[in-house]
């Protein structure tokens, strides 16, 4: 554990809590892509199956359980509790265009051809593209509430901090996870355009982020 990894995990946790509380308090999931949240729930489910097979640390186990519970609670809020506020017509990204290539790639490029290993690889690849329905929704509607942009900012910061974590681990431990690093770089790139808009529009302006 290093400072980049710890800060990265905390940003990830903050992002998920921001989104959950936004929906819970406003009793509305307007502007939120339910599809992205289902994909993230799928990411955690397929990656954290090792909760049953290996123990890393109390921190690791607790965080995994918290992420899983919050991911499913968010999906529950969007699709069941506050379903009437969900903008399904704007959330029109075709997730099969992500799921099929990601599933195919996880069978082709993995560390070992075993069920748990393929599911773990699938989760890594899927996480790198899971935010695309949300970014697509913002592009389509042309705006996002500031709280939604704060959620995306912390999610992007988590990714950037994980990159720093891998650089650190490579130099201090010789640790290198090729699948995670390549996917992580791809994932972080998706946030670059958003980061630019966040700093130029949201922080300098006020309220909603509108696209040019």
């Amino acid at each position: 554990m290093n400072i980049f990894r710890l800060l990265g995990d905390m940003c990830h946790l903050v992002a998920i809590i921001i989104l959950f509380l936004k929906i819970w308090r406003s009793k509305s999931c307007a502007g939120i892509s339910g599809k992205s949240q289902v994909l993230f729930a799928l990411v955690f489910t397929t990656r954290y199956l090792d909760l049953f097979t290996s123990f890393i640390s109390v921190y690791n186990t607790v965080m995994k359980v918290v992420f899983l519970v919050l991911a499913y609670a968010t999906v529950y809020l969007i699709y069941l509790r506050f379903r009437s506020t969900y903008n399904s017509e704007s959330d029109s990204f075709r997730v099969e265009f992500l799921l099929v290539p990601v599933a195919g790639l996880s069978f082709l490029e993995n560390y070992a051809f075993a069920p748990l290993e393929i599911l773990w690889t699938f989760s890594i690849y899927l996480e790198s593209v899971a935010i695309l329905p949300q970014l697509f929704m913002i592009t389509k509607t042309g705006e996002a509430e500031s709280i939604t942009t704060h959620y995306l900012f912390f999610l992007g910061l988590y990714r950037a901090l994980y990159l720093a974590n891998w650089v650190w681990r490579y130099h201090t431990e010789g640790f290198f996870d090729q699948i995670a690093v390549v996917s992580g770089v791809v994932q972080t790139i998706f946030y670059c355009d958003f980061f630019y808009l966040y700093f130029t529009k949201v922080l300098r302006g006020s309220g909603k982020m509108t696209l040019p």
Binding site: H12, I56, N60, E109, Y111, I179
Partner: peptide
């Protein structure tokens, strides 16, 4: 890809 790293991250 050959070497499998430890899965100790989230």
């Amino acid at each position: 890809i050959t070497k499998m790293p430890l899965k100790d991250e989230l």
